[in-house]
Amino acid sequence: MKGVLYRDVHESQWNQLLQLQANVRDYVGVIGLTVVVDEAEGYAYLRSRPDLEDEDGPAIPRLIPRRALSFHVSLLLALLRKKLIEFDASGGDTKLVLTREQIVEMMRVFLPEGSNEVRLVDQIDSHIGKVVELGFLRRIKDTDGHYEVRRIIKAFVDGQWLAEFDQRLAEYAVELRGDDHEET
């Protein structure tokens, strides 16, 4: 009940879940959860049932906490999701593997330039660590700085999330330009 169940990591539990899917849905439904199974991508997770929330908030206490993400972590998630879209469009392998350097270069474009390159890379490393902790990236063992982008990112960073994030980025850019170019 904690975290994501992956077909390639938890093979026996995955097979049990598929066999007992209806029973699991009934069981977790009693406590206000629903099980999401994506057989094509090979993952499953629990989510709070949205139909149990009313306009004043959740009708029952949330068992799965919501996490507020920092701007930089949200940015990294959006960049990784877009990279996964490009990767899937090109066909080929099923696992997107990025190096630490590739991730740093993706993020560098969006961060202010400074004189301290080491500090900037350290900050990006901390953002990568948070995304690993959230389960959207996985460090590949026996490699130096290689990460697999986990497909679960598709369930959480969907088109609506990306559109909302793009809107917030545009508002942020207007706000920054407004401070620099106020001439009225």
Rank of each mutant, 00 (worst) to 15 (best):
K83R: 15
S90V: 05
G135T: 03
D26N: 12
Y27N: 01
L137C: 04
E53V: 11
E183A: 06
E105T: 13
V4C: 10
F110W: 15
G32H: 07
Q13E: 15
I140F: 00
R100S: 09
V174C: 00
F71A: 08
R49Q: 12
E39V: 12
V4I: 15
L52F: 06
L69V: 05
L111E: 11
D144K: 13
V37E: 01
E171Q: 15
L46S: 03
V109L: 11
F71V: 09
V118L: 11
S115T: 06
L98W: 01
T34V: 08
L52M: 05
E164Y: 03
V35C: 07
E113L: 03
L80W: 05
E53T: 12
V157W: 02
Y27K: 09
L176D: 08
E133Q: 13
Q123K: 13
A170W: 05
G159Q: 14
G159C: 00
L176K: 15
A89P: 00
D56S: 15
G145E: 09
L75P: 08
S70V: 01
I60E: 08
E101P: 00
L96F: 01
R168G: 00
S70K: 09
K2P: 04
G3P: 04
A22S: 12
I128R: 08
T184W: 03
R119A: 13
L84F: 09
Y172H: 12
L98Y: 02
T34I: 07
F71N: 02
F71E: 09
Q102G: 03
D54K: 06
W161E: 08
I128S: 02
V132R: 07
T34C: 05
E183Y: 07
G29N: 13
K2L: 03
V9E: 14
G159D: 15
V9K: 14
V131A: 06
Q16R: 14
K154V: 08
D144A: 14
K154Q: 12
K141P: 07
I31W: 03
K2F: 05
D26Q: 13
E101V: 09
A173R: 15
I140H: 01
E53A: 14
L63I: 05
D54T: 10
R139I: 02
I152T: 15
D179S: 10
D180T: 06
K141R: 13
F156A: 00
L96T: 02
Q13D: 14
Y43F: 15
E171F: 07
W14K: 10
R139W: 02
L96V: 01
F136M: 10
D125M: 09
G92N: 04
G129C: 04
F110G: 02
T94D: 12
T94I: 10
L111R: 10
D56M: 13
L17K: 02
L63Q: 04
A163G: 07
L169A: 13
V28S: 02
V37K: 02
E11M: 01
L46A: 01
Q21L: 12
L176T: 06
G3D: 03
R100Q: 11
L52Y: 06
I103T: 01
H146E: 14
Q102M: 06
E39W: 00
G159L: 11
L80R: 04
H10I: 00
R47H: 11
S70R: 10
E86I: 06
I153C: 07
V30D: 04
P112V: 11
T34R: 14
L17M: 15
V157N: 04
L18P: 00
K130I: 14
L162K: 06
A44K: 07
I153F: 05
